[in-house]
């Protein structure tokens, strides 16, 4: 079986037609392949996120991760860019949706695309993945421990981060949720609330919750890494994408 992949930086059209940087991973066969937009976490367009891109490409998907901080910090190291954007209040939701839309359009136009596009994000990217699935025509969405999909944002939080569960009636695709039971943001109660709402609305969803795991359990370079949960979680993510994107 031919298994060559390629990963490289490309330029795509983002929100408002802005030209933004993105990291593309793809199998080099003729396809047709399903595609995935990877939304990086608040700490930025970093090495770990690029590894997710390559892993998904190796699994047989066209994968694109837009650098959400391209505008504020072109060429900066990921941690410096993240600090700058964080200090400026984060990424506006509308711009995030526009950047994911641009990434999805880029993927659909690739000659080896089968036309289907999913989205995945961790942490702040989990909320962003849910938000994208509520505002764009997608085929699958994976929310890995996204905070503030449900719940209450504390009053003293200066960012314009608001819960997005009220947008759930607009969900365009099935949702896979991956959560750690020791997490506080989102807490198990926040996850219960989301699951109940999706059930009430009749929206297809599949949630997996791991004991002994907290926030960020997929992050192999961090102390919160939980290999049992992460290994099982990756298998479920790939299975979900294969069922919905292939």
């Amino acid at each position: 079986m031919y298994d060559a992949t390629q990963a490289e930086t490309v330029t795509i059209g983002g929100h408002g037609g802005d030209r933004i940087e993105a990291y593309l991973g793809r199998p080099l066969g003729p396809g047709p392949y399903g595609a995935v937009v990877v939304i990086h976490h608040l700490p930025g367009y970093d090495r770990e996120t690029k590894e997710y891109v390559r892993r998904l490409a190796d699994a047989g998907f066209l994968v694109l991760c837009p650098n959400l901080y391209s505008r504020e910090a072109p060429g900066a190291s990921p941690d410096d860019a993240a600090a700058l954007v964080r200090a400026a209040g984060g990424v506006p939701d509308e711009r995030l949706v526009g950047d994911v839309a641009g990434a999805a359009a880029y993927l659909r136009e690739m000659t080896s695309s089968n036309g289907k596009v999913g989205v995945i994000g961790h942490c702040s990217g989990g909320r962003h993945a849910f938000l994208s699935a509520c505002n764009l025509d997608l085929d699958a969405a994976v929310d890995c421990y996204g905070a503030f999909v449900t719940g209450t944002v504390p009053d003293d939080f200066p960012l314009a981060v608001t819960p997005v569960v009220d947008q759930a009636p607009k969900l365009s695709c099935p949702v896979l949720g991956m959560f750690g039971n020791d997490d506080r943001y989102p807490s198990p109660e926040n996850v219960d609330e989301l699951e109940a709402e999706l059930t009430r609305l009749g929206k297809p969803h599949e949630f997996h919750r791991y004991d002994g795991a907290g926030h960020g359990f997929f992050g192999a370079d961090r102390p919160n890494y939980r290999p049992e949960a992460a290994v099982d979680g990756w298998a479920k993510i790939l299975d979900f994408f294969r069922r919905n994107l292939v």
């Binding site: 964080r86 200090a87 984060g90 702040s124 905070a147 504390p154 997490d183 506080r184 943001y185 926030h215």
Partner: peptide
Amino acid sequence: MCTYLTVKA
């Protein structure tokens, strides 16, 4: 968690 809260000076 991502607290988002930033104190500036």
